[in-house]
Simulated scan of single mutants.
Amino acid sequence: MSNASYRLKHPKERTSSVVFSSPHSGREYPSSFVTQSVLDPLTLRSSEDAFVDLLFRQVTDFGAPMISAVFPRAWVDLNRRSDEFDPALIEGIARGALSPRVASGLGVVPRVVSGGRNIYRGKLTREEARSRIEVFWKPYHAALQALLDEAHRACGQAILVDCHSMPHEALVSNGSGKAKLPDIVIGDRYGASADPRVVGQVEAAFRAEGFVVARNMPFAGAYIVEKYGRPAQNRHAIQIEIDRSLYMDEARIEPRADFAKVRAALLRAARRVAAIEADDLPLAAE
């Protein structure tokens, strides 16, 4: 199933309470957007979580659905609130107290890509920004909410695994220089978006495949896990960030020769995650 906003793959039989999401891997760039931008096409892709949807698309074999964005993050960012407009980019938006993300140009309609490079020559109209929310942002979130509600009704729990990738440079700049850099960072907003038992099982699944795993540093999770994570209701949301250098040439945005090997290891971990059962967890509060 697909529309302008997302692609949705259903398993032949839904046996898992887990929903996999890839909101930043969209790579269908509107021609008008490419023309409008001051950046070349490769630079415009630098914020993209390239190929993450391909890494995880076989999770449907484990009884879990997967939803992934069609359009790019640089066009509209699903991991932001729908009202996080940047007054430096959108006409008619009042300047006020801005979140650090919006202030840096990373609102729901981004002003910049990686490295703080401006996307546009000038400003966008408020109508253009709101159109992107209506046509792209809202359908994705409506579909994601429906998937999680279905899981909760069927299994008594819902677990969102929100799949992302992170630039290797971000890990280097945040590393202490002593410990080995993580391959995967699990974000649960420091325990606010998922029960620790769920997070522990997810972490163990990736460690079993030899990945070095860290929690919440440098990425603890943003809007999506904050919105959908309600552990007291047995609704858990976890962000997974994968070091891009493990599977792709970051400069060329091309899969590495060992892409299939990394994908196989991630899928073995995903199989264990998809098998997490409600019986393993405490009952939700009444």
Rank of each mutant, 00 (worst) to 15 (best):
S173R: 15
Y140L: 14
Q145Y: 00
I90W: 07
G92D: 11
M248L: 15
L39A: 13
A278T: 12
H24Q: 12
K138M: 14
A74Y: 03
S16T: 04
A274I: 03
V273W: 00
A232W: 02
I119A: 03
A214L: 09
H236F: 02
E241T: 11
P231T: 00
E209S: 14
A151P: 00
P87E: 12
G96W: 01
A205M: 08
K261D: 14
A237E: 10
V262N: 06
E277T: 14
S176E: 10
H152E: 12
F206R: 08
V19T: 13
L44W: 02
K178S: 08
P139Q: 09
H236I: 00
A285N: 11
V273I: 15
A214G: 14
Q239W: 07
S104W: 08
A97P: 10
R126H: 07
H10C: 06
K180W: 01
L54S: 06
G187V: 01
L283H: 10
I242D: 07
A251E: 11
L267T: 03
R197K: 04
G115K: 06
Q58N: 12
M166P: 03
F211L: 11
S16R: 06
T125Y: 10
G191L: 02
R132F: 11
H141N: 13
Q233N: 08
R73T: 05
A284T: 01
P139S: 10
S173H: 09
H164Q: 08
L89E: 04
H164K: 06
M1P: 01
R132N: 11
P30H: 13
L147C: 03
P23H: 10
E13Q: 10
Q145K: 15
E241G: 11
F219I: 04
L55R: 06
R252L: 12
S31P: 08
A285L: 15
I224G: 04
T125E: 03
F51D: 05
V213T: 13
S25M: 12
R268F: 04
I67Y: 02
E150P: 01
P231C: 00
P282Q: 05
L266G: 10
D40V: 09
K261A: 15
L106S: 09
P182K: 11
D162F: 03
D40L: 11
S104D: 15
D280V: 03
A264W: 06
I240Q: 07
